[in-house]
Design a protein around this nucleic acid. Sequence first.
DNA 1: TATGAATGAGGGTTCATTCAT
DNA 2: TATGAATGAACCCTCATTCAT
Lengths: 213, 213, 213, 213
Amino acid sequence: MDRSEPSSTARTSRRERLKQEREKRILDAAAMVFARNGYHRTTIRDIARQADVADGTIYNYFDSKFDLLVALMAQLADLDRMPADLFAARDQDMHDFVLTAFAERMERIEQGEEMLKAILPQVFVHEDLRERFYQQYVLRIATLLEPYIQGQVESGHVRPVDVSLVTRLVQGMFVGLLVLRILGDQPLRNQWDEVPKLLATLLLDGLRGEGGA
Amino acid sequence: MDRSEPSSTARTSRRERLKQEREKRILDAAAMVFARNGYHRTTIRDIARQADVADGTIYNYFDSKFDLLVALMAQLADLDRMPADLFAARDQDMHDFVLTAFAERMERIEQGEEMLKAILPQVFVHEDLRERFYQQYVLRIATLLEPYIQGQVESGHVRPVDVSLVTRLVQGMFVGLLVLRILGDQPLRNQWDEVPKLLATLLLDGLRGEGGA
Amino acid sequence: MDRSEPSSTARTSRRERLKQEREKRILDAAAMVFARNGYHRTTIRDIARQADVADGTIYNYFDSKFDLLVALMAQLADLDRMPADLFAARDQDMHDFVLTAFAERMERIEQGEEMLKAILPQVFVHEDLRERFYQQYVLRIATLLEPYIQGQVESGHVRPVDVSLVTRLVQGMFVGLLVLRILGDQPLRNQWDEVPKLLATLLLDGLRGEGGA
Amino acid sequence: MDRSEPSSTARTSRRERLKQEREKRILDAAAMVFARNGYHRTTIRDIARQADVADGTIYNYFDSKFDLLVALMAQLADLDRMPADLFAARDQDMHDFVLTAFAERMERIEQGEEMLKAILPQVFVHEDLRERFYQQYVLRIATLLEPYIQGQVESGHVRPVDVSLVTRLVQGMFVGLLVLRILGDQPLRNQWDEVPKLLATLLLDGLRGEGGA
DNA sequence: TATGAATGAGGGTTCATTCAT
DNA sequence: TATGAATGAACCCTCATTCAT
């Protein structure tokens, strides 16, 4: 489609594209080296080398080293947008929906692992990042999940639990699994794909056998 | 022979005590400022001022700034030792035991929050710390929990689940709750004490009402 | 292809030249302040100020303060390369050759005095430097001198002395004169140019008058 | 002999002796570690450990770290006092006297090697030490040697050379041999005892065989 | 007098950022 | 716009010296 555009526009857009590509290259490089060595042990030069640009060039795209983190977080937010079809599935059977939602979540975590590893340590330390992360990673799904569970409670499919707290626990679970992954827990990593099913079972039906205690 | 030299012994022990107090003061100061500002944004001078000692004094007690982190982690490990009476409670009713264990766990997290906040960001970044943290914070309880659940499975009180994975999930849950706490989640913080009960319920009986499926 | 881009080449080479000049300026500054105040009493800031650059700039050219010493030693080695025409003179009359060689040596010492003063104290202290200095300053001339004297012994122009030891003594003499110079011996400094002749006389003919004892 | 002294005096003198012993122990320790690691790389603690005293104790005997160097130099001066019997030998045959004097000199160097190694690097760097060393190590013998050679010139046993300069050269030779020794020259070290004879021969009779030119 | 912990000034080095080319 | 050298503030750590015990 670009082919049909006038040359001047094309040239501009090519430049534009080059710029965006370069920006992405820098950001990817930052994610990689941050994830590998941590934010503080990473120098601008490390990133520049990895992105194959000069040190100074990075400052044509990002205001500061910290700004790279913020940009990574934004990129993560993009990746992390809850897909529309999940909304649509809300009316399915509860178990199916929960399973789908969990599986989707686990996959996101897996995909974003590197970025998360790059960002997370700084999240604990930096007020601004912490707030963003909390809003985006914790609250976003909470606001989806909470009304859903609330509805299930009201319709009697679920015990009359403290919905807000349950939501926190589910959130916490995913955060915890992410952390365990980053910490290198091998068993978890190996069985990552089986987690959603087990999780759904536990959440909905508990550990005790159907016959119950 | 020391008995005949009470003064010398006394003097020695007073010095010894002074030294230990000072070491503790430094460590506490480190925990506080690390937790407040993060490891890298904390200078040795910050710690020294907080502990009300000279910069150099810190190096009479710790080899390096990093060594302070390691010492904090060791202190956390001490705090975190699983109490003997918990072992004793294993033969109780499952729900009671789980509840007790979870409550104990939550309390530990609460107590150690500052230290954890000081340590955690570096845990992600530093190989050595990561390993220690994983061994001590993740595996330690797993090795307690896993055989317990295994036993319950074998005795038929619990579904035939993947015990190792369930253990991971429980672990992950606590780690996640810790992280949420550190991230400043207010609802969770407010209802912290109610978490164990809810958690036990969910884990054992699931969300679905007893009428269930 | 470069031929068509004179400006680029020129620009590159100008930069290159600037860099080399700056490196030399730093090295000269280091030699000066090391010589004046000694290695340890000299700070990087002293050198930077003397070279009129920022502290950090020095580290764009040298890895460490110690590396400056090593570079100085290398520069000394360059200065100290035995000139080819001296080799050519080996077939002259022995007295003439020795005189020429000594004179050349004395001049080198004079030229390199500042660098030697900067380096020497550390040579005694630092294994690596000691080895380099020994190889370059002691052995280099020994390997030139020794076969020469050996030849003279064999041809009967010289007594059957222990050639290796004589070489050492001659070496030691130059080192000693250097040290005396550095120590500030004024009489020696004043008559520096007359040393080669006297030295040649002593070495070849001894103190005793021609009639001998 | 102390045995016959009254107890009070004896006690005092015992204390005195203890003090002197301790001072000597400290000084020896300083010489050893300075020689091994250099002045700057040696810490007061190193010396204290080697002397088996506490850090602070050293300051009861010496004003400063630098003062230890000065004391070492004084000790060297003691060792280095030209023995009276050498004076007596001045009327011997010239060759015998020179040989004796040289041998005595070489032995002094050998004995004082460690102290010299400890002191020398700082001599180049520190004005005060340099002056002391020059006076004591260079001029002292010069003032002995110079009139002697002068006398030999006047009595016709020696060519009409520049006596002052010859003296310097002889001085320089010993300094140079010391430096070569410290630099670790093995051949020289192995044949150290043969140096005086060779040196005397060279100085008096030159390299050329008796048949001469 | 001996001890050894406390002190804090000092210095080598790093690295985010700037800017001339 | 890209480059990469220059900058200099910042910081960890050392260690000579002091001093309370």
